[in-house]
């Protein structure tokens, strides 16, 4: 099943708008981290380059806050978003 070898990437707020992307389903290599995925996505260029730019990007893995070195794998939900501004 393809589901076994993919993960879901979600974007929110300014990133969602500027990347014109709400979510992606991507094949995942073994031994990958959230930071490596971010760097890989930034290589797409254009608006994607901001993912490793000056503005901070928050990372959540399976809806829990994560760090660039957090391991990710098949079936995971990885989210990238700007600092939060609710309330």
């Amino acid at each position: 099943m393809s589901e076994d070898h993919t993960l879901t990437v979600r974007f929110f707020a300014r990133l969602r708008e500027e990347l014109n992307t709400e979510s992606l389903t991507l094949p995942i290599q073994p031994d990958t981290t959230a930071g490596q995925l971010l760097t890989e996505l930034a290589r797409r260029g254009g608006a994607w380059a901001q993912l490793t730019g000056a503005q901070p990007v928050m990372i959540a893995v399976n809806q829990t806050m994560a760090k660039p070195d957090t391991p990710i794998g098949p079936g995971d939900e990885v989210a990238f978003f700007p600092p939060v501004t609710g309330g």
């Binding site: 929110f12 300014r14 939060v84 609710g86 309330g87």
Partner: peptide, 14 residues
């Protein structure tokens, strides 16, 4: 709760 919500809960305002 209010202060922590503002900097911790994933909401974004436009």
């Amino acid at each position: 709760i209010m202060d922590a919500l503002k900097t911790s809960a994933p909401f974004w305002k436009k």
